[in-house]
Design a protein around this nucleic acid. Structure first.
Lengths: 133, 133
DNA sequence: TCTTGACCTCGAGCGAACTCTAAGTTTTAG
DNA sequence: CTAAAACTTAGAGTTCGCTCGAGGTCAAGA
């Protein structure tokens, strides 16, 4: 059996842990969101601790609406080292601003929804009362 | 000149007001997100107050991540009248739950981002200090 | 009258993000 | 040793949500 407790894992195990499909993980590598992954002697991908951590961060960005093209740019700057710290910081700050806007949007929509839910409940209750009479 | 203050507006005016393109508005009608819009004698669409309000609500759902297929289903139930109140209520409650999850995701990501931004700032400051020496 | 611009329909095209197929190797369990 | 499961590649196909092009009508302004 494969050692699942190791800090070097296969693509299948990473898929299981991340909730992505192996297809998607390879796709992310092919578009440059993940750097070229180290291989075992047989050519199979081996994901290390740092790859896993990076993927987790990528998924955070993705789930909060950053497009893959932008994540790729960030990844490529990261790969180029410390000289790109400033532009990366700018990207993060920009995304943070978008999050704030998104959160405002969500909470506004939540209260609209709450209003609708309340009136729906009332209407349904009234309809039922009428039927009983 | 066209009367822009009226409560019956053209597709161009609605596009201007909603920020969507006229293409998109027609597309929404074609997929059933908007009901078939009333026409002027010449066949041009005329949007009334209720159409505009409905579109506003649709955009709230869309911006908070409800897929068009689901919005269409809601719209079609709405068109079928009071008998669909219960399933519509269920849909709204479901979407509300998703909003809560999304908001949690966003704020979690925001704090991760804040952490990164802080360490980036520090690293940049240190690098500059080193260069001065 | 002529031109410009806003509208119409239908169907094709596009970009993003996967998702899968095919054909081939390798690993692992029995 | 063999069968099934897990991996590899390249490239095709799918879904979603638009976005546009072609070709046509119609109305208002110069």
């Amino acid at each position: 059996m494969r050692d699942v407790t190791s800090n070097v894992i296969t693509i299948g195990e990473l898929a299981r842990r991340s909730g992505l499909s192996a297809y998607t993980i390879r796709f992310y590598e092919s578009v440059g969101v993940l750097r070229p992954i180290r291989r075992a002697a047989n050519g199979h991908r081996r994901y290390h601790r740092d790859d896993v951590l990076w993927l987790e961060f990528v998924l955070k960005l993705k789930r909060t609406g950053m497009p893959l093209a932008e994540i790729r740019q960030y990844a490529q700057r990261r790969a180029r080292g410390e000289s790109t710290l400033q532009p990366r910081l700018t990207m993060l700050k920009l995304h943070r601003k978008r999050l704030v806007i998104q959160m405002a949007e969500l909470s506004k929509c939540a209260s609209v929804l709450d209003g609708k839910i309340r009136t729906y409940r009332k209407t349904i209750a009234e309809t039922k009362a009428k039927q009983k009479r």
